[in-house]
Design a protein around this nucleic acid. Structure first.
Length: 155
DNA sequence: GCCAACGTTGGC
DNA sequence: GCCAACGTTGGC
């Protein structure tokens, strides 16, 4: 899951009550479907910082709730209000995310891209122009990426 | 700050 | 249903 650290960083997540935050404001159907249909409480999550000096994976989180309708879509005062979504027929969903830990080092995007023609070939994050803010990670991809945490950082 | 890539909108 | 225009994302 991506977040701009200027808007909401992993430190912000760790500082929340119960270290938990509803992942509201997502207005993309692919990401919506993942949160509504695929993500389960306890699922592990990579926390990614985007649109910053060194974009990359900074920590681990976990899914802390099932998917449920995003209440900010119903609130006319909210930034992500969507009049097309109403409580009878919600259009947008979220899951809650709980902080687990920081990685021992940031795993930068440029390092992940080294695997873009190999084990991460199907991982959307390393593909050019990718804009999906919530994306699935396969167990194989997860193990590879997490293994980089304790490997020697390239120059 | 630039700009390529992408998703959405809306005219037709 | 097509597709050009537009707004947004996000790496660099």
């Amino acid at each position: 899951m991506k977040s701009e650290p200027d808007a909401f960083s992993i430190a912000d997540l760790a500082a929340r009550p119960n270290r938990t935050e509803p992942w509201d404001g997502v207005r993309n159907y692919q990401a919506r479907n993942l949160m509504r249909d695929a993500m389960q409480p306890g699922d592990p999550v990579f926390f990614y910082h985007s649109n910053c000096a060194v974009p990359g994976i900074v920590g681990l989180a976990e899914v802390a709730s099932p998917g449920y309708p995003d209440p900010t879509a119903f609130d006319p005062a909210a930034r992500y209000f969507d009049p097309a979504s109403d409580p009878q027929r919600p259009r947008w969903y979220l899951v809650e995310i709980r902080y687990v830990r920081h990685l021992r080092r940031l795993i930068p995007l440029h390092e992940l891209k080294a695997y873009a023609d190999g084990p991460l070939a199907d991982f959307p994050l390393v593909r050019r122009g990718n804009r999906l803010s919530v994306m699935p990670v396969t167990p194989t991809q997860w193990e590879l990426i997490l293994g980089l945490e304790t490997s020697t950082a390239p120059a």
